[in-house]
């Protein structure tokens, strides 16, 4: 069933299930949009929740039900911008992007990446969790076009064509942005690994 059909059903009061289908269908993308905009997972989840609620409550004002998705993503973007302005995080965000202070730890947002460090593999698993947490922090520091493409891709596991339509660019550009993002991440992870190796040698 299309978004437009679901929106009409929801507005007609036919079934609450229409609201649920819309929310479950679009939640990953809205969280992805918010994450790409503000660069912090926990904040993104709160903002996505707010944007989804705003969208549902304003559903009757949507002029073209078929455009529910782009409309909702627009609400999510505006919600994030409001948040960034209100909390004066724009400059913080810029410093994060330029590799300045405030990056690296993932701001404690990724608690779920911690694994129980027990048993024989404890050290190794803790190290893996640390690597993944660092990886997410580096994702947050990517330039916005690359970060947006990467986040939507991994949040939703969608095709280049889907992403291209969502971002308003060609599939080739999606391909290029994902490639640049992965290469940048690889470069930064290698730099980090080199730094850790050096530290170990110094300690030894």
């Amino acid at each position: 069933m299309t978004d437009g059909q679901l929106v009409r059903q929801a507005l007609a009061g036919a079934t609450p299930a229409a609201y649920e289908t819309l929310v479950r269908r679009w939640a990953p993308r809205v969280v992805g949009v918010c994450h790409a905009r503000v660069g912090r997972a926990a904040a993104a989840e709160d903002l996505a929740q707010e944007a989804l609620l705003r969208g549902l409550r304003a559903l009757a004002t949507l002029s073209d039900p078929e455009k529910f998705g782009p409309w909702l993503c627009g609400i999510a973007s505006r919600t994030c911008l409001d948040w960034l302005k209100k909390s004066e995080r724009t400059e913080v965000s810029l410093s994060r992007l330029t590799g300045g202070s405030g990056s690296g730890s993932g701001s404690g947002d990724d608690g779920e990446l911690h694994v129980a460090a027990r048993g024989a593999d404890a050290a190794e698993r803790a190290e893996q969790a640390d690597d993944l947490r660092h990886l997410m922090a580096e994702v947050d520091r990517l330039p916005e076009p690359q970060r947006e493409a990467l986040m939507l891709y991994y949040y939703e596991d969608c095709t280049y064509q889907d992403l291209a339509q969502r971002l308003g660019v060609s599939a080739a550009t999606v391909n290029a942005r994902l490639t640049q993002a992965r290469m940048a991440l690889r470069e930064r992870l290698v730099d980090r690994q080199d730094g850790q190796d050096k530290d170990k040698r110094v300690r030894a």
Partner: peptide, 14 residues
């Protein structure tokens, strides 16, 4: 975990 978090967001909204 991020995808799981998105599902949790949907639950909270609903």
């Amino acid at each position: 975990p991020r995808r799981a978090a998105a599902a949790a967001v949907a639950d909270r909204v609903l």
